[in-house]
Write a protein that binds this DNA or RNA. Structure first.
Lengths: 150, 150
DNA sequence: ACTGTTTTTACGAAATTGACAGAAAACATG
DNA sequence: CATGTTTTCTGTCAATTTCGTAAAAACAGT
């Protein structure tokens, strides 16, 4: 259904460098026609391989407090808690994990007060949440989307 | 230097929905000229407010194992370890945190073997790394980039 | 009100994209 | 190997978008 070949990966790599790169430029780089690039990109988009987005610098838009929160849940509550948390716009990432924490989320807040409010007034009141390890980001070293691709 | 106003935030919101949305469409939506949108976007790009990228679905490109690893470091080693880790393409995110772990990283691997190799052969051999809590992702519930913007 | 600066608008040229049809290539099957 | 089928690629043209630039407008400070 959607086996990617070497050319697809090359296209993805070029787009990772710059999401605005035009089809025609990629076509030149790969020495094929522009239509080929376009049809392959559209196919990958249709298959959910990737999407065009923007990456906003949180600090530049007033989201100065970032946290990764490890959550311990009661057995069988993971899904319910996760889908509850999905609604919060502050929450960027939610995953179920094997390891010390059942759920790990990453969330961005305007300030410390918003973070504290989220943890004390929202998170703590969700059924099945037993414990939350809050890690507040002090410094960011890397935040990339250029995955290693063959 | 780069105070964003309401129109800037609106532009960002529209672009978050679709990174390919043309200037002219945003201009129509906000009822200003195309040039205005273009100059504001270019200004924000220049100031590092955001960037155009693609978000690749890790599973669709053969990165089936995702992990969040909490690292305990010896005092004073954080920066050195972080800059060492930056080089690894597998590592998507690195941050210094207050809380249980000094550093938290998120990384994507082809398979379990690659993860184990990374932890045992690479991570464990870095000077100052005392302990690593490896959390392997079992299920992803949310992974968005549409930050809450005023 | 005047001046200098920044932002917005307007408009034509260049480039990109989208749609479609035909050619070429790849593939499976008898 | 030949055949028919499917998929992928290419080329073309119209529509749309982007880019460069100069004029107009808005704004801030004196």
């Amino acid at each position: 259904m959607d086996n990617l070949d070497q050319m697809d990966f090359s296209i993805l790599n070029y787009l990772q460098e710059n999401g605005k790169r035009p089809y025609s430029e990629i076509a030149r780089l790969l020495d094929v026609s522009e239509g080929t690039i376009r049809s392959r990109i559209n196919k990958m988009l249709k298959n959910g391989v990737f999407e065009f987005i923007i990456h906003t610098n949180p600090n530049k838009v007033g989201l100065n407090v970032q946290a990764i929160i490890g959550i311990s849940t009661q057995l069988g509550c993971q899904d319910a808690i996760a889908s509850h948390l999905q609604k919060y716009q502050e929450v960027r990432f939610i995953g179920a994990f094997s390891g010390k924490h059942d759920l790990i989320i990453q969330a961005y807040f305007r300030d410390n007060e918003s973070l504290v409010h989220f943890v004390n007034e929202e998170l703590s009141k969700i059924d099945g949440v037993m414990h939350a390890d809050v890690n507040v980001e002090l410094k960011q070293f890397k935040d990339t989307f250029s995955y290693m691709i063959p």
